Simulated assay, not measured.
Amino acid sequence: MKVYQSNSFRSGCKIIFEKEPCLIESNEFVKPGKGKAFVRLKLRKLLTNQLIDKTFKSTDLLEIADIVEYKLYYLYNDGFFWYFINDKTLEDFSVEKKVIGVNKKWMLEKDICTIMFWNKKPISIIPKVFVKLKVIKTDLILKRNTINNSTKLVRLNTGAVLKVPLFIQVGSIIKVDTRSGEYVSRIK
């Protein structure tokens, strides 16, 4: 069992806390004038995506999480499982719908995704940062409404709905930031 000492905690480290894998999002070493030094951490639980604040003594140890990340190609889904393949080893993986979560609206076939495995089970998926998606439906905009509204809602070929500028039409290809779910630009 490998462990981190509290003075080795860094942002991005993956640890086991309360028998669950966590990602250290930020750390702060505090040495007060009186008393012993301690470390203040912001931890993101990787299974539930919950953010917690925790303080550790300078002598505390935490187990290193056995997390492996793979870049895999998305193949298809059957509504219950999403299927991926490793192009180097040709090993295929299936991921449950609950692990995919809201990321399903950013995934197209043949896209590369990063999948985190803990104890050989997929726990989270990270789609590409920017995706190019096709607009299949737009809201009707009345001329009198264009003064106050500079955006409209569109439906994309993956089922995602988002706000875009008024000049975007059905059939347009747009670039979307998957981290925020926002329109970036139109692709010509």
Rank of each mutant, 00 (worst) to 15 (best):
E69P: 14
D78Q: 02
D66Y: 08
E20C: 13
D87P: 06
T146F: 07
Y73L: 11
K188C: 12
I16L: 15
S26D: 11
Q50C: 07
L46Q: 06
T59C: 05
K163C: 06
T48S: 15
L156K: 04
V68C: 13
V131D: 01
S11Y: 05
L133R: 05
V176P: 00
L90T: 07
L61D: 10
K188I: 03
F117I: 03
Y70P: 08
V131C: 08
I126T: 10
I52L: 03
I67R: 08
E63I: 09
T114I: 08
N103F: 01
Q169N: 15
D66G: 09
I125F: 06
L153Y: 10
L23I: 08
L108N: 09
W106N: 03
Q50I: 06
K132I: 15
T138L: 00
K19Q: 13
W82Q: 07
W82E: 04
V161W: 09
I67Y: 02
E96C: 00
R155W: 05
K105S: 04
S8P: 11
F130D: 07
S11D: 10
I173N: 13
K143L: 07
K57H: 12
K110R: 04
K71H: 15
N27P: 03
L108A: 01
N7H: 14
P127Y: 05
L23C: 11
V161L: 05
D66M: 04
F38K: 05
I187C: 13
G181H: 13
C22Q: 03
Y76T: 09
G33S: 12
T114S: 12
V184K: 12
Q50E: 15
V99R: 02
G101N: 14
F29A: 06
V164Q: 01
W106E: 04
V161E: 13
V30F: 01
L43N: 01
G35R: 08
E182I: 07
K163A: 10
T158R: 07
T114D: 04
K104E: 03
D177T: 01
F117A: 09
R186C: 11
G79W: 02
E25M: 11
R10S: 15
Y76C: 10
E28P: 05
S180E: 05
V176M: 02
Y70C: 10
E28F: 12
G181C: 13
K14Y: 07
K14S: 11
K175R: 13
V3D: 11
I126H: 10
I141A: 10
T114C: 09
G181M: 10
I187W: 10
I52M: 04
